[in-house]
């Protein structure tokens, strides 16, 4: 068990390292330079060279990489090339926004998806078919388009929720959740479809297990067979996919944050990409990769805890 955790941790650190390396190499393979970004449009070649020199861009590649890694280890993310803001502080305020959207959307997808999937597996027939086809369509819809539809219906036509904007939790908790509701609903459409399909397959498989026949032979009430025993059996794949959903929604929030003007990681990564803000790019990649890797680690532990075979080993 200990060796397993150690191996997983090594892989996690390796993944973050790989992400930094890939981004670093891409940045240096491109034609631009940080000096050109910092000096701004219309700067002369000498000004750009001077700016690059101040940023250390003219040093050997491996020295720069070691420097980058050294700063990251000390959690020093540097400053933005464009507005000189402290990136560490910036990420610290943005992470909770993206994190709460992804987490709440995952929870909502989980609840809706499990209800739909279990219904499909238990009812079968036409109900199962319509849930399955509905999930197929939901998975194919571009989230940004669904978001616009929600804004049109919930905000413009019904006036229930604000269309865009973000209210910090500390300022107004109710305003906070209403400002996040449409983004969460938008992300949950595809998420719930994914969970519904997984839950339906898992429940169907669970209900075909031999031990379900033992329970039936004992006269166990149907609700207990379905919602205690079969659901517990199906919980392992469902929880795995829930974790994968969180990762997907975390990444998917880039577009959603842009659509709803939410000050999260996605927004900053879009601005950084558009402005070739190299330190900001690397810092966003590091944070996002770390979140993904930590989620995967946590997921492994939860799945292990769910399975008696692993737990008792």
């Amino acid at each position: 068990m200990l060796a397993y955790v150690a191996r997983r941790l090594a892989l996690a650190v390796g993944t973050v390292f790989a992400a930094v390396l890939i981004t670093f190499l891409l940045v240096h393979a491109g034609q631009g330079s940080p000096g050109a970004v910092k000096a701004g449009a219309g700067a002369s070649a000498a000004e750009i060279a001077q700016a690059n020199h101040e940023l250390g861009w003219d040093r050997a590649l491996w020295v720069q990489f070691a420097d980058t890694i050294g700063h990251l280890i000390r959690l020093d993310f540097g400053t933005s090339l464009i507005d000189g803001r402290d990136l560490g502080h910036d990420l610290f305020t943005r992470l909770p926004v993206t994190g709460s959207i992804a987490l709440l959307a995952t929870l909502l997808s989980g609840v809706v998806g499990v209800v739909l999937g279990v219904t499909a597996a238990v009812r079968g027939g036409r109900v199962a078919q319509s849930i399955n086809s509905g999930a197929g369509v939901a998975l194919s819809l571009p989230a940004f388009w669904v978001g616009i539809l929600f804004v049109y219906v919930l905000s413009l036509q019904l006036g229930w929720l604000p269309a865009t904007g973000y209210v910090p939790f500390a300022d107004d908790p109710v305003g906070w959740i209403t400002s996040l509701l449409i983004p969460i609903l938008t992300l949950a459409v595809g998420g719930a479809a994914m969970i519904a399909r997984t839950a339906a397959v898992g429940m169907r498989e669970a209900l075909q297990q031999e031990h379900i026949r033992t329970l039936r032979a004992m006269g166990t009430p149907t609700w207990r067979i379905r919602y205690v025993h079969a659901l517990r059996y199906a919980s392992v794949p469902v929880v795995s996919v829930l974790g994968i959903q969180f990762i997907a929604l975390f990444g998917g929030s880039v577009i959603i944050e842009n659509l709803f003007a939410l000050p999260g990681l996605g927004q900053t990564s879009q601005i950084a990409a558009a402005g070739h803000d190299f330190p900001a790019l690397i810092s966003v990649v590091v944070v996002a990769t770390a979140v993904v890797v930590l989620t995967n680690l946590l997921l492994d532990l939860v799945v292990a805890a769910l399975d008696p075979k692993v737990r008792t080993a």
């Binding site: 993944t15 890939i22 891409l26 940045v27 491109g30 975390f250 990564s269 790019l281 996002a288 993904v292």
Partner: peptide, 24 residues
């Protein structure tokens, strides 16, 4: 498999944005 596991653990969209930021 180790290499592909690492690749699969990367956040795709954010990495793609980094690619755009780097190579245009």
């Amino acid at each position: 498999s180790r290499v592909t596991e690492t690749l699969m653990a990367l956040p795709l969209i954010i990495l793609l944005l980094a690619v755009i930021g780097a190579i245009g």
